[in-house]
Design a protein around this nucleic acid. Sequence first.
DNA 1: AAGGCTTTGAGGTACGTCAATCAGATCGTG
DNA 2: CACGATCTGATTGACGTACCTCAAAGCCTT
Lengths: 342, 342
Amino acid sequence: MGKPTVHDIALEAGVSLATVDRVLNGRPGVRQKTQDRVQSAILSLGYVRDLSAANLARQRQYRFVFVLPEGPGQFVASLHSALREAMEVQRADRIDVRILAVPPHDPHQVVRALGTIDPGEVDGIAIMAQETPQVRDAIDRLAAAGLAVVTLVSDLPDSDRDHFVGINNIAAGRTAALLMGRFLAPATGKVLVVTSSLLARDSLERRFGFDAVMAYEFPEVDVLPTLEARDEPGRMAAIVSAALVAHPDIVGIYSVGSGNKALLEALRRIGRPAGLVVIAHELTPHTRAALETGEIAAVITQDVGHLVRSAVRLLRAKCDGLSIIQSQERIRIEVLLRENLP
Amino acid sequence: MGKPTVHDIALEAGVSLATVDRVLNGRPGVRQKTQDRVQSAILSLGYVRDLSAANLARQRQYRFVFVLPEGPGQFVASLHSALREAMEVQRADRIDVRILAVPPHDPHQVVRALGTIDPGEVDGIAIMAQETPQVRDAIDRLAAAGLAVVTLVSDLPDSDRDHFVGINNIAAGRTAALLMGRFLAPATGKVLVVTSSLLARDSLERRFGFDAVMAYEFPEVDVLPTLEARDEPGRMAAIVSAALVAHPDIVGIYSVGSGNKALLEALRRIGRPAGLVVIAHELTPHTRAALETGEIAAVITQDVGHLVRSAVRLLRAKCDGLSIIQSQERIRIEVLLRENLP
DNA sequence: AAGGCTTTGAGGTACGTCAATCAGATCGTG
DNA sequence: CACGATCTGATTGACGTACCTCAAAGCCTT
């Protein structure tokens, strides 16, 4: 016979359909004793409620909001487009996703944007933002109001978010260091580390992991202090060429965050030392092209499509009180070389 | 207002519900003229049929069969367990997956197993098998009978399968070569290639890609002919130690297919040259441990959970005539180092 | 225009669940 | 034991679709 239904439970427990329904949906008006009887019938029959029938009956709509920076960066652009692609498909699944774009590098704007979210109108949010106490408090408020919350790409571990969707950035930095060290060996020299900003938690964690492995595994290589380009045009070229002049023995460059386009352009203009090993993060049109030409040796990245799909699945699972497949939601630290580009 | 329903279409087209239903489900008894009227109403209203309601109404059950080798190998074992994990979740989705295990290395058994599948009882199959004309014909028969068919891990490109679920093995071999060359440089010497069998298409393709990149990019490294261990206990140790004696300048070993456990044990017993670089395929308990100890420098793998989930999604999409998200179904060639182990 | 054919309409039941009502049963308490 | 108060049962109507029947209407052909 097929899967047990509410009718079977009613029969097994010796109660009516209405009572089973009240127990299943946590409505009041059922004695503890009767509840137990129903629960044990559910267990013994192995009943699992048919979510699609339930959603059909109750006309359920999942309303999720993605709070994302709208920057000039290629990475957030690809996040946006992955999300839009996913939205198409999810409409069929009764999932309605809205994007709330906020100016980057401005936590105050993020807090304001979160304030505009009416907890009665929204079931869950995914947020990518820098870590500040104000942002954390705004998130906690929404979580307290019953929203499902996941952090995206860059975590806010001290907040009340339900999940973090993204890679372990310390491990990502360690992976970058391992590749850098092995690609360089047995050559020695200095490694330059550049990024647009060290304010974001993900950049910090990558740098931390990178330094740890470089110091322990490749002590003969000298890692220079991080230079920040702060998304200012021209600044990346200036700091990179200054560093190359100051340290003629630079053999590697590790690009921690965004700003790959500027870095690549700067290297093209000022010329690169022979055998220079460049390792960068995030697959974008620029890093892809540079992998193909050999300007970048390896890119460490996370699949943006996977990110958004995982975030949506987690939000949905939270709303329905469902369990998740751990392995499906673990975002992989992908190592991309010229030969395994997707 | 919400999404349009069949009622709205009937109204818009000026026909009855029954007629809309006949058109939607391709039942006979509707004049071409009326069909067109209904179709244009569907288009103008942007109607999309609610699959979950439809499946509920028709009591649909997707019945899929996975035809997998049951070998001693860790990789197929992990495939089995990933599949069993996925089955739990998919039961809630009206998806019923059965595993049909066949003895490995015996195409005849595969054909026999496929013959036991009643096309009336099954909606789709996923199959992992060696490429022979008989297997191909058996697959074509099932496809002709209307089953959805995907090949898993190792493709049968000349068959009528709908999709291949797995990595591009040529690219995987190229990736292995690029890593091997860069990890070795500037050292030169010989690279040993071992596998359990070159009969499977995936092994062949990997070897092909590996050779291409080694010859073109690292001509100073000498790649030895492939040695096959054929899953015979003891044979791996014998051929590896013989090779190491015959070629004292072996600097790298590329393990194309299964047999990693035997390879690692052999190396432990007979001792390994200093600086030896070992690159292997597929993450298993053995390769994971060896990555952690440093015995293996890199593992190239594919996520088995992703494999089975993708296969199920593709089979379902085929059954429903739905479109798919290309990027979600592309299995990534994962490069695993000690630091980015999942 | 009568015959036979195809096409269409109207209506019903079902799928598994949610949600609501109202009447009846049971309970604890004084 | 009678009183509200609290539980429970029986029933009904959604939700959007599938599938079936029966009768009515339309269309040809002769």
